[in-house]
Amino acid sequence: MRRRNLPYILSLILAVFFTFLLCLFFRQSLLIVFLLLLLLLPIVSVAATRHAAGRLKVSLRLPAEELSVPADVRITLRLENPTLFPLLNCEFKLLAQNRFYPPMPPQEIVVAAEARSVSETAFPIHFTAAGMFCLDLEELYVTDYLHLWSFKLTPGIRRELPLLPSKRELAPVRLTKASVESEDSVVSPDGERSSEISELREYRPGDRLRDVHWKMTARTDQMMIKEYEHSRDLYFLLLPELEKRSLQESLISLYSLGHKLIRDKESYRVALYHCADHSFEFLPVSSGEELRDVMYRLYLEPVENSSSAYVQLMRQKPELNGVIRIHGGNILPPETPEVY
């Protein structure tokens, strides 16, 4: 029973009491029938509601496709009532939140679950911010026809809907790769590697000058680059520094740059900063799916007012240079770009 049922219970008690008095005073069969009806109806109402509520099936249907903001999405709440009794008062408490933002005040939705049918209710949502959208269907109160009793059901339905940021055109920027060990450890590129050349390839923007195979270049009239055995360890390293103030811009920049690099057939890594223990995780990205996964991983991290990711990275890996920072919504090239 909920507090809001009390007025109805009191009104029923009053009705029974007054009908009883009228029965005593007037002894009318109609009044006695009413009295019996007033006594029976609540029982029927509560029993039928209990019967139907126990068999009610609740589900939430979210779009399966990948979504990028801005997006208009329709979430469907399905109520399947297989019984003969319609439930007119099904009250849902819906909690919706983008994890990067405070939760929206609860939405109470009162719908009817018609008998022997599926009642569907659609919630149109307009998304303007990227992030992990969470939908919780925690409580469902099924109130009987006379509002005397509410049965609390806990569907425990929780759905998450990741929303990718929009892409934007990037201004030309000169980037360098950082040397990253294949075991995801980063070493300083000292040029002292004694490994053998595995292949020669054409120059691509960002290649270091020291890797140019000058002889071959001269021979072929094309800038040829030496690919060492360990040259795979040279990647673009993107460090997203997510701050509340410029969160969406940073996400957009990261996502746009990531896509650009993929388009350029570049493998790169994203340094994921866990602010709880100040550790870093270097996630390799070479395709759109991997970038999406990285974004989803990023959505699960808390956002600080001012990010200390770069400071921490430099403290932990002072030898690392060539880190591409995504800071304040902008892409900051490495501080010591290699001039070529």
Partner: peptide
């Protein structure tokens, strides 16, 4: 209200509709 929601929560809820 809804534009305020978008700024505060990153999304806004439109009019709920019954599909029946």
């Amino acid at each position: 209200f809804r534009s305020g929601d978008e700024e505060s929560y990153g999304f806004s809820l439109g009019d709920v509709k019954s599909l029946r």
